[in-house]
Design a protein around this nucleic acid. Structure first.
Lengths: 98, 98
DNA sequence: TAGTTATTTCGAATAAACTAGAAATAACGA
DNA sequence: TCGTTATTTCTAGTTTATTCGAAATAACTA
């Protein structure tokens, strides 16, 4: 993972509203949640919510799939795990290991 | 860890310059590095570097200790690990487990 | 096709972050 | 105390993010 890609994802999660959306989706698991359900749970105006979800999708932390009238959002666990791994990798390498 | 605290730390890491500083310190391990050494390695103007280090320190991802004329910066591994844990905790809890 | 629900896009106001030069402070050694 | 090195604080210009109402689009149902 490139540093610019990691920074982009961390920046996305570094907004309290987006982190709230993301954490709600993490708890929801593999099935995810429709946008409207997120709106119910979080109480955010639709345009604001859509803007933040778009941000999470654009850096691939969240994926979306249309199901009729509903857009279902799901955490991209592969991306999440890669991001977590990026933060800690090569730890203490310049000092000869932890 | 509160969501506001996690978002604050993620926001800090979500800037490419700061992420570069942080990753350099992660690789440096427990001994960390003086500010000047970071400046040599990263080639950032002093005032900009100081500003970003201050940001990392203010959200406790990095600690500083004066050693004579030099200020040594070290990653707060406890905080780093807590942040990583925050991102993945309660995963799939609303769906009955992963 | 008309109506309804779900969601996005547009637009514009407000707020905040990033950058870096210059000046200030801190700590040491002569 | 003076000079030198290390780092921060000040300041200001520029850029970028956040917010949300209103209007537009998408998909279904009658």
């Amino acid at each position: 993972m490139k540093i610019s890609e990691a920074a982009r994802a961390l920046e996305s999660l570094g907004n309290e509203t987006r982190l709230g959306i993301f954490r709600t989706l993490v708890r929801a698991g593999l099935d995810g949640l429709p946008v409207g359900r997120l709106q119910q749970r979080l109480g955010i105006p639709g345009s604001t919510l859509s803007h933040h979800i778009g941000n999470l999708v654009s850096c691939k932390l969240v994926t979306q799939k249309r199901e009729g009238r509903v857009l279902r959002c799901t955490v991209n666990y592969t991306k999440m795990n890669a991001l977590v791994a990026y933060l800690v990798k090569e730890c203490c390498q310049d000092a000869g290991g932890c």
